[in-house]
Amino acid sequence: MSPHIAWLGKKSPFCGNVSYGFSTTKELRKRGYQTSFIHFDNPGNSNTSKTSLLANDPDVSLPYLIKSQVYTIPSLSAQRELRESLERLKPDIVHASLTLSPLDFRLPDLCQQINVPLVATFHPPFDSKLRNLTASTQQLTYQLYAPALSRFNKVIVFSDKQAEVLIKLGVKKNRLDVIPNGVDEEIWMPINSDSASSEKINVQNRLGSKRTFLYMGRIAAEKNLEALLKAWKASNTNGCQLVIVGDGPLRPTLENNFLSTDDCEILWWGYEADLKKKVALLQCTEVFILPSLVEGLSLALLEAMATGTACIATDAGADGEVLKQGAGIIISTESVTSQLKTLLPVLKEHPLLISELGKRARLRILEQFTLKKSIDSLENLYNNLL
């Protein structure tokens, strides 16, 4: 009988942690695992902030005071309710996709008391070279978490670089397992000219006939979208459009400051929740651009690569590792605007280069970053623990 995994993670608001939790638990269930998803859902002042009383309920909600894409503040009763839930569910393994919450630091003691192995997935963004203020702030997060991570049975990180950062901060190497994000290559795949779904037709109609360069992700300071917009404004991009897919705190300001003109097309698409439309957007895109100052391992980058889209990304986090050896174009987190001002006209004038980069990106995903490979590695970790 396959083990019972109690998964602690997020279901909202949407972010990389949410995507990781949904895709991983879905695949584990396909392989016969029983999974219980424990997450922060009910506000602390809600009359409904109680965990389920059903022993076989796969979904348990904990009360919180504040919840955002970045961090979570649990209510005072959350720790007690978590313990009661775990004692009732009796899992074989607790796997916490850490939500940057004070509760994260109490998990080792809690799991030790109920004698259950504890696995953490630790994926805050970082830039190991500390080249900017945002990277310095993220480094403090790593310094804060390192002592607690040393007390988990296993800690999953997404790249060798990330493991090196934690080892320097005192986490033992044998506690760390490098298991990169993976994507379903049968969902995220190059465009099929024989297939014309309604979603694809709707996306193509909205994009029009111009060649598309695209950013997809949160519109927040660490994503450095302003640098891309400045480069786009300063480049000769006639016949092309920059499409911004996503939402976030900086969207109103940037959208107001960077409007389309006759010779500079910028389309603010907004947040897109529909999976098929997101796939179609990338299939219709020639170049995906990720100008982040800090990253973990960008799921949006992997999805773009899987659809055969040429990719440009900074070397923040593990993104540079993914694109190395010709799978994409890697730029430094320093002087992003000036680098893009050089690259954008070159790519515009050389569609064959774009095509070749797209083919190499897809091949890299098939070789190293499929969801199957990721879940295979996770299963191996579980088996070794048990």
Rank of each mutant, 00 (worst) to 15 (best):
M1I: 11
W7L: 09
C15L: 09
C15W: 04
C15H: 03
K26P: 10
Y33H: 03
Y33I: 04
N47L: 15
T48N: 11
N56L: 13
P63A: 11
I66H: 15
V70L: 15
S75L: 08
L76A: 13
E81D: 12
S85F: 07
E87N: 11
L89F: 10
V94M: 14
L103S: 05
F105D: 04
R106Q: 12
R106K: 14
R106C: 07
P108N: 10
L110S: 05
I114Q: 12
A120I: 05
T121D: 08
L130H: 15
Y142G: 05
Y145N: 03
A148M: 09
S150L: 06
K154Y: 08
V155K: 06
V155E: 04
S159T: 09
D160R: 13
K161N: 12
I167N: 01
D177T: 14
V178Q: 09
P180N: 04
G182L: 05
V183N: 05
W188C: 02
N192E: 12
S197T: 14
N205Q: 13
E222D: 14
N224R: 08
L228D: 11
L229T: 00
E255K: 14
N257C: 12
E265N: 08
L267R: 15
K278F: 00
K278M: 11
Q283C: 07
E286G: 03
F288R: 08
S292Q: 10
L293Q: 07
L293W: 07
L293T: 01
E295G: 08
S298F: 06
A306P: 04
I312L: 08
T314Q: 09
T314E: 11
E321H: 06
E321S: 03
I329T: 15
V336G: 01
Q339F: 05
K341A: 05
L343C: 08
L344S: 01
E349N: 10
P351W: 04
L352S: 09
S355W: 06
E356V: 07
K373H: 01
S374G: 01
S377I: 01
L378I: 13
